[in-house]
Design a protein around this nucleic acid. Sequence first.
RNA 1: GCGGGCGUGGCGGAAUGGCAGACGCGCUGGUCUUAGGAACCAGUCCAAUCGGGUGCAGGUUCAAGUCCUGUCGCCCGCACCA
Length: 806
Amino acid sequence: MKYDILNTEKKWQDKWEQDGIFHASEDHSKPKFYGLVEFPYPSGAGMHVGHIKAYSGLEVVCRKRRMQGYNVLFPIGFDAYGLPTENYAIKTGIHPRKVTDMNIEKFTSQLRRVGFSFDWTRTVDTTQEGYYKWTQWIFRKMFDAGLVFRATTLVNYCPTCKVVLSNEDSQGGKCDICHSDIVQKSKDVWYLRITEYADKLLDGLNDVDYLPNVRLQQENWIGRSTGAFADFRLVDEGGNELAEKLRIYTTRPDTMFGVTFMVMAPEHPVLEKYADKLTNKAELDAYKAECAKKTEFERTQLVKDKTGVCIGGIRAVNPVTGKTIPIYISDYVMMGYGTGAIMAVPAHDERDYAFAKKFGIDIIEVIKGGDISKEAYTGDGEMVNSGFLNGIATKKEAIEKMLVYLGEKGVGEKGIQYKMKDWAFNRQRYWGEPIPIVHCPVCGDVGVPYEELPLRLPAVENFAPGEGGESPLAKIDSFVNCKCPRCGGDAKRETDTMPQWAGSSWYFLRYCDPSNDNSFADPERLKYWMPVDWYNGGMEHVTRHLIYSRFWHKFLYDIGEVPCAEPYAKRTAQGLILGPDGEKMSKSKGNVVDPNDVVDEYGADVLRVYILFMGDYGSAAPWSESSMRGCKRFLERIWGLLGIAVEGEVTPEIESSIHKTVKKVSGDIEEMKFNTAIAAMMALLNDIYDHGSLTVSELKLLVRLLCPFAPHICEEMWQQLGETGYCSLAAWPQWDEVKTVDATVEIAVQINGKVRAKIIVPSDADKDALIAAAKADATVAGLIAGKTIAKEIAVPGKLVNIAVKG
RNA sequence: GCGGGCGUGGCGGAAUGGCAGACGCGCUGGUCUUAGGAACCAGUCCAAUCGGGUGCAGGUUCAAGUCCUGUCGCCCGCACCA
């Protein structure tokens, strides 16, 4: 009897959905398990096999959990606001709402064909009013809490998309969406004060189980460094002290006696403040103008000679030596980190060294150990030329002493800095959540009242942003003009929308209670389901989505809206699927594999098994259609077991093989080692065919073991074997530890590390017994005869090694 | 430059410090077929007598793909972060 893939798969998918067997309920009699995968952005291109891989890992885990008796929540939804949809709408004239609905429909049908056990009753779509009402609500709460602020600053601006981008969205100086070069532009920008949560985001990592490289990337992104702030007095040409001091940040206060000059960013406000004192203002302005032309990318990315201009008319005083030193402006110092000014210690900092060499500035060694005539020395060593620090041997101690000194003199203190910057939160775009703020000429920025949410996205004819980069919403007078919620006077609405990351910052909470209209989710339900027990997604979201959503969640925790401090107890990541050519899949390379094509030809089960079998789940692996045929054979051979299964007594060999496999597969799923789990089942299958038969009860066990991977064929076989319920809900097979241990085991006997013989011994043989058995072997006896035994090592269950001399 | 990871057959990849190459693909030979790009059976690291093999060179150990040092190559993240 041949297995009819396509009809069978459709049949079971329909039955699962009709009976709602994957619908989660708040059943307090069972332990809960919340498995979360990153919901997709429904692009017009449809899904590719990479999406399937991203969901297949937790799909197996969740299916196993259900069979283990857990109450499982495994939801899916759509992160549907975003630029590609809007750009498509601009190009085609089709409204983004319609485009989004079409794409969601396409994604849904693709996902259903793979047979994922999602709870389709809890689907969320971030662009629905019932959803973005609460996105706006959380934003308003942040506004009330003072975490939202407006500032005019230099921002990353994409001239193609005509939007302001966060640092996260413009990594490498390229727009994350269209890959154009980013330019710096002065703009009025809304920020979320994520830096306020830097410590909490960092410290919270101690309480969760994230993949080590995920954790490390988050730590690096937040980038906490401890050091010191110090104030340097400023003096003018005549030696008169100025009112303002120059504040710097340093991680090396121990080297302060080696400071021979200072550098500030070209945009530093001190230059404006004391413009009248400057003797070379024209030269400074020219340099400043030159820097403004460069993008942040050029300033930071290009390896180049240090440039700069010495400030004429103002000098600084080293607070520990009392010496007067020059100040430079240079673009190697950024306004956006620390205080925008540094103390330069050329002897012990590579950048300062390069600058000093170029400008002929003194280099004073304060730490012994290097050769400062050749290069900067950044290592540890004994302090010299450093007054009260002389003779101290370690950096740590010297820093502590200096901090005490700075404190006593009132010229500095310990300080902490972060690389992470506040989150630029507005986009001049149509297809996003309107920012619920009103600008009142009298009251200033006022939040839209909670009872007026959602602030609906109005219908628009033309979605293109204005030439000046203003939002399409700015053209709709009926939207813009409004009354101030506070004073009732004429006011104007904010016309920018939120960035794409807004909706995905809290979706995992909405899944707990997706249709609630009175709150973003019922507190009791949140208490039951949260935190997410296991979250899997791509490495590319580790520094953005994962940080942002933790930030939103922590804020909600602080205002008492969610029951736990961290949203995700565990985070893992899948590797990419590369094209058959070994390159990253992309439309332009034409190497994208469409899951629909694979399902048409091989069926969903083969697709699922192959994707999990192709390699380590966390690593990238190229697609290979011929390798997939092996998985097809595997499932066909599984199906063939129906023909050889008989009622009767189990044979010990096969029984033992099955128990070992159950143990192996159960453990491998927990470690996401799906490839070796499938390999173990393949090996078991080979054993069974070699043996020639198995019992019906053994086959039922095997079918349950395979069910999370290939559920359709397993349901069909389950039914063929006379079962009336769902295999998907049957009990996860148990193994008997005793039966995983063979009565005898083959042991390798090594002489001086080389295998010379194999012996069969009882599995529980101890070391002495092993050595005795080894020596009793004829080959071994011959090889050690007449030689001195230097050492005998026996590892039960593994091997014996006899080291001989002579 | 800094941080992290990786390097194993023709290919994807397995190996708590304990018999390297599980499992799959591909390939070779065979069976059955009008046919085979189907199915099944046998074989498949090199050399085949000792042996030699996990990028390269050392080291630790009774024992190293695994640990340590150096080196080469590749991948990812951050990038003048003071």
